[in-house]
Simulated scan of single mutants.
Amino acid sequence: MKPLPRGRGEKDGVEIFVNSPRNDVSVRLIKALSFLVVFTAGAILGFSAATNIHQFMSRGKISLPSPVCIKDNIEDAESLNNYIMPKKLKHNMSDDELFWRASMAPRKSKYPYKRMPKVAFLFLTRRNLPLAPLWERFFRGHEDRFSVYVHSLPGHRLNVTRSSPFFRREIPSQTVAWGSVSLLDAERRLLANALLDFSNERFVLLSESCIPVFNFPTVYQYLTTSMNSFVESYDDPSQRGRGRYHRRMFPTIKLFQWRKGSEWFELNRKLAVDIIADVKYYSVFAKHCRPSCYPDEHYIPTYLNMFHGDMNSNRTITWVDWSRGGPHPAQLGRENITESFIQSIINNGTICTHNSVPTSVCFLFARKFSPSSLGPLLRISPRAMKF
């Protein structure tokens, strides 16, 4: 190896080579010392900075957010149970959005879960339910076989206990005017909200003045085994029937198709879906069936007569007393309530058919009962109504 020339200050007789072992060891030693110095300085600075930040934060100068643990809510959002049986009735859907959502019907006949068919009780009320204690007794012990939905004034809360089947069962509602299409809207709104629960198979419209005249097992068996729905639908040639038909409904709805009936209906799921999915015929009623026409007495009876007459029994299952005459049924108070009176409703002499078999059980509910009737009804219900 060729030696490098000596420079100034070098000792005589000592030759320094580029790759000499001595030079290599010196370089490594310098690098190690440099790394150690830098590491030590960094550790000291880091410790000092951490100490200052801790002291700064402890004086309340800055507040950093706590670590957030994002829980996976996919199971809650997309679970089958949440879809087929909504736990909360409150939502922000408009009527159009609600009816569209509720009109969805599975084409596959077999359910992928164990389905217990339920009866949906739809209460159309002005404010409170004065007869709620009687209904609570009627429902007790059958919680897996019914659902309750209440359409009251917007924002109104029922005054019931947390254990009541009516607790938080108010649906998003709108103001209703008697005799207008808004009453029909409320009925369709109740149906649509109840259809969101796929377990609901039968749908009964009731008012705050309605009572059951049989116990729950009897009512449930009667409805869930029926091959027909129960909607009163008949041709009334008088001014109160055909006289309410508007010629501008033609040709969508013809006079010979026009029907009348009690608004207090009972429907199976298929008919309920068809009614809330209808736009064409509902629009005709909304436009031309104005006050003095009473769309709640004509729309569903006419619609079923036009398209589903074979699925309807053409009778109501809600008894009322028309014996006193006038445009409204008699109101029944405390003085009217006796065991014999309830028995006269149950055994009223009427013969009807259930699945084409003659029967004397024709009415499951009755109206129009005033709040004063509650006490006597509670006293006689164990004997007269068997609940």
Rank of each mutant, 00 (worst) to 15 (best):
K287C: 02
I171T: 11
S207D: 02
F203I: 04
Y245L: 11
F230C: 06
R162I: 12
F230W: 14
V204F: 00
N193D: 11
V181N: 09
F230E: 07
S229L: 05
N159M: 10
D274H: 12
G261V: 08
P217N: 09
D235G: 06
F250K: 14
S226Y: 06
V181E: 08
Y220W: 11
G261K: 03
R247S: 13
Y234T: 10
P172L: 07
L206E: 05
I275N: 01
S164Y: 07
R189H: 02
V273L: 11
Y294W: 12
D274P: 00
E170A: 11
A192C: 05
G179C: 04
L191F: 02
F256I: 12
E232H: 03
L183P: 00
F166M: 09
R169G: 05
P237W: 05
T225R: 14
P165D: 09
F216M: 07
S233C: 09
A277E: 05
A194W: 01
L205F: 03
L158V: 04
T252I: 14
V213R: 00
A286Y: 08
R244Y: 03
T225H: 15
Q174W: 00
V273P: 01
I276A: 01
A277P: 04
S229P: 02
T161C: 04
Q221W: 03
S182L: 06
F285D: 11
I253G: 10
L267A: 07
K287T: 14
Q257D: 14
T175P: 00
S233G: 05
A272I: 01
Y234G: 03
R269M: 01
L184C: 09
F203N: 05
D274G: 05
Y294V: 15
R244S: 12
V284C: 06
L191I: 08
N193M: 07
L191H: 02
R290L: 15
V176L: 06
L255G: 03
V231G: 08
S199C: 11
F214H: 14
T218Q: 11
T175H: 10
F216I: 07
Y220P: 04
S229H: 03
D235I: 10
F166A: 10
F216Q: 07
S163A: 13
S199N: 15
L271D: 11
A286G: 02
S238K: 10
S207E: 05
D185M: 03
L184I: 02
S283L: 01
R259F: 08
T175K: 12
R188I: 04
V284E: 12
G243W: 06
S180F: 11
M249C: 15
S173C: 06
F256A: 14
F198G: 00
E170L: 08
H288D: 10
N228E: 13
F198Q: 13
K254L: 14
T218Y: 04
F250A: 15
K287S: 12
M227C: 08
Y245P: 13
T161D: 14
P217G: 07
L158M: 04
T224I: 15
E232T: 02
S233L: 03
E232R: 04
N215F: 01
F285R: 09
R168S: 12
Q174G: 15
T224C: 11
W178Y: 13
F256G: 10
V213M: 00
P217K: 06
T225N: 15
I276S: 01
T224Q: 12
F265Y: 06
N215M: 01
S292R: 13
L206N: 04
I275V: 15
R168F: 02
A286M: 05
V181C: 09
F167V: 05
N193S: 12
E170R: 07
F214V: 03
L271Q: 13
F166S: 09
